[in-house]
Design a binder for these strands. Structure first.
Length: 482
RNA sequence: GGCGGCAUGGCCAAGUGGUAAGGCAGCGGCCUGCAAAGCCGUUAUUCAUCAGUUCGAAUCUGAUUGCCGCCUCCA
């Protein structure tokens, strides 16, 4: 099976065929940098990160662009409130965005262009639109005329006539049609501005993506992504701009991710329930956050709550526990033949990036490996495993790591993962690792002497400190309870 | 008012015409000195409701009900 992608434009899953065979050009709308990033930004960025990783894993030479919107009303207002420049504010939040996303193990895009650094390209597109009669000037503002573009509404499935009926749109005397939107806004006092053929001003929101997409990817590119909320008007307007200006198809596949709700409610200012990434990753391992975000299909809504996050954390633990077990018992196998697990994972991913199914495949595999390794519980180490079984385990282990590489999880060694978890968990407790190891040693001696009373009292004491012990033929390990 | 989406076991969630993945929780068992971890078994004759198409539907069609999103800045 080959890759199929749900295309918002057609409303269907379509076989993926890039414009240029073997190469994928992809653009995703990045953040408007005026505030910290929340878990919803994380979802969009992680989803498209996985999409890019997968496209590359199946051999596409992929160019990936994600922009920063660094000039708009919200940024200007915020900067003015704080008494700093637009640039100071946007740079601060760009840095923070990069920190958050690096922490979430998101790979940087090939280019991360900023609107303010592409004013010339933006002006060029606007000029063309005016020349071709798709835009008009009013006192230094330039508006796009939606009536001039026949396909207006084709992405969002709207008709201009229908929208006007019950529209909640302010009537602006300067516009010919209420849905006309600004390509260029004339400068107001105290606003940053750039010179243009229409006077001092700044670009409207939508035009930057048309201009920068063209700059980095060309006039037609393969995938354009973003949150569902961007379908209208943002992406609808991008299509109108680019196709009117360049006379060709703008984007072949439109991909939109669903929202993150918080305890069944939409994140909103009035509810004050924004979950910032920097806060979430203080409590949960970044890979647990990724596992959570990828555990639903990317187009469905997902509900962020403690229970779901705890389950994702437990799931991640389960995977790392298995990996640790494999490495302790049979080590890293050599001469590995690929198992069919990765193949099954790819089948899931080929079906519109079905990461939820893909994660199920990981757990299937975890169970089957544990089953094989359980043959050892009675005896010492791997005596009961046949050469074939060891090979199978080694292959499955390698496949899981390969899947992890696409999902951006399991990037640490199991030891490092558990050690880090212990450190974090012990930080605010009155115990340290050395003390625990010492107690485990004492318990081991007691058990050897069949003094189970002492052994159990040690275990109980650790248990009261939220430390759980696990005995196995390979020795005793300890974990901190969540 | 317009447009779109969703409704699957106690909870989360895959499954888009061929007879219900996976995770969490529960119960029974194996293993263990006892635990923990892991494994095995078990929990939906059934996929909001009703009607229809079909040899066959959770999957297609129509209607009903209930949620949700977009149409205004928003990932």
């Amino acid at each position: 099976m080959s890759l199929n992608i749900y295309n918002t434009l057609s409303g269907n899953k379509e076989p993926f065929e890039p414009f240029e065979p073997g190469k994928v050009k992809m653009y995703v709308c990045g953040p408007t940098v005026y505030d910290s990033c929340h878990i919803g930004h994380a979802r969009s960025v992680v989803v498209f990160d996985v999409i890019v990783r997968y496209l590359r894993a199946i051999g596409y030479d992929t160019t990936y662009i994600r922009n920063f919107t660094d000039v708009d009303d919200k940024i200007i207002n915020r900067a003015n409130d704080l008494g700093i420049t637009l640039k100071e504010l946007s740079e601060k939040y760009i840095d923070e965005f990069n920190e958050d996303m690096d922490a979430l193990n998101v790979r940087r895009p090939d280019f991360a262009p900023k609107a303010t650094e592409h004013i010339d390209q933006i002006i060029d597109v606007i000029k063309r639109l005016i020349e071709k009669g798709h835009a008009y000037q009013v006192n230094g503002d330039v508006y796009y005329s939606v009536n001039s573009f026949e396909g207006y509404g084709k992405l969002s499935g709207r008709k201009l006539e229908d929208m006007e009926a019950g529209a909640r749109v302010d009537i602006d005397e300067k516009k010919n049609n209420p849905f006309d939107f600004a390509l260029w806004k004339s400068a107001k006092p105290d606003e940053p501005s750039w010179d243009s053929p229409w006077g001092e001003g700044r670009p409207g929101w939508h035009i930057e993506c048309s201009a920068m997409g063209r700059e980095f990817l060309g006039e037609t590119f393969d995938i354009h992504g973003g949150g569902k909320d961007l379908i209208f008007p943002h992406h609808e307007n991008e299509i109108a701009q680019s196709e009117a200006a360049f006379g060709k198809q703008f984007v072949r596949y439109w991909v939109h991710n669903g929202f993150v709700n918080i305890n069944q409610e939409k994140m909103s200012k009035s509810l004050g329930n924004f979950k910032m990434i920097k806060d979430v990753i203080m409590k949960y391992h970044p890979e647990a956050v990724r596992l959570f975000l990828l555990s639903n299909h990317y187009r469905s809504p997902i509900d962020f709550n403690d229970k779901s996050m705890d389950e994702s954390s437990a799931g991640l633990d389960k995977i790392y526990t298995l990996l640790l077990r494999v490495e302790k018992s049979i080590g890293s196998a050599k001469d590995i033949e690929p198992a069919n697990i990765y193949e099954k994972f790819c089948e899931a991913m080929d079906d519109d990036f079905n990461t939820a199914r893909g994660i199920g495949i990981i757990f299937d595999s975890v169970r089957s490996i544990n089953r094989m390794l359980d043959k050892n519980t009675a005896g010492a180490l791997d005596d009961n495993l046949s050469v074939e079984e060891k090979k199978e385990i080694g292959s499955a282990h390698a496949d899981i790591l390969r899947i992890g590489n696409v999902l951006g999880i399991i990037t640490e060694s199991p030891e490092a993962y558990f050690n880090k978890k212990k450190e974090t968990a012990l930080e605010d407790k009155s115990v340290d690792a050395e003390m625990i190891e010492e107690m485990i040693k004492k318990r081991f001696e007691a058990r050897k002497a069949k003094d189970f009373e002492t052994a159990d009292s040690i275990r109980d004491k650790l248990d009261s400190l939220n430390i759980t012990l696990e005995d196995s033929p390979e020795g005793t390990i300890w974990k901190v309870k969540e």
